[in-house]
Simulated assay, not measured.
Amino acid sequence: MDTAARQRIFDSFAAQSMMKTLGAELSHVEEGHVRITSPILPGALQQQGFGHAGLTFSIGDSAAGYAALTTLPLDMEVVTAEIKVNLLAPARGDRLIATGRVIKPGKRLCVVASEVHAEANGQTTLIAVMQGTMVPVPT
């Protein structure tokens, strides 16, 4: 990826107030792959004390969407058309790591996936898998 393409991803991510609220950070960007990390903050817990599924979904969706965006021209953005989540385990630990990837890039539809892992005491556990469709739209 060239510098302008990478910068576009970082600028777009910085404009997301939801990601700021969650304390999420963009930690890795390459063509077709994006990683987002987020602490499991006290304000993002569900009733049993685990990270809320909304946190898991939010960073998984964003990682997948930004992975799709890495494959598109600079005058395009993406929006999520649909995304399915399978929650596999509770979000226990200190932080979540969402890794998004492109399954099939396209001009009209991009098929994407992401995995979300919870990290606790240096160990990671796969807690969710997602697959969805991103729609390229003009900026």
Rank of each mutant, 00 (worst) to 15 (best):
M1D: 11
T3G: 08
Q7F: 04
I9S: 01
I9G: 03
D11P: 07
M18N: 09
K20S: 05
K20F: 00
L22E: 02
L22F: 10
G23Q: 01
E25Q: 13
L26Y: 02
S27W: 00
E31I: 13
G32P: 14
G43V: 09
L45S: 10
L45W: 04
Q46M: 10
Q47W: 13
Q48V: 13
Q48N: 15
G54Y: 11
G54N: 06
T56E: 00
T56F: 00
F57Q: 06
F57E: 01
G60Q: 03
S62I: 10
S62F: 02
A63R: 03
G65N: 09
A68R: 01
T70E: 10
L72V: 04
P73W: 06
V79W: 11
E82R: 10
E82V: 02
N86M: 00
L87W: 14
A89H: 13
A91V: 05
D94T: 15
R95M: 05
R95H: 12
A98N: 02
A98G: 05
G100P: 00
P105K: 15
G106L: 08
K107V: 10
R108S: 12
L109M: 14
S114W: 11
S114P: 07
E119H: 07
A120H: 15
N121H: 15
G122E: 09
T125N: 10
I127S: 02
Q131N: 14
M134W: 12
P136F: 05
V137D: 08
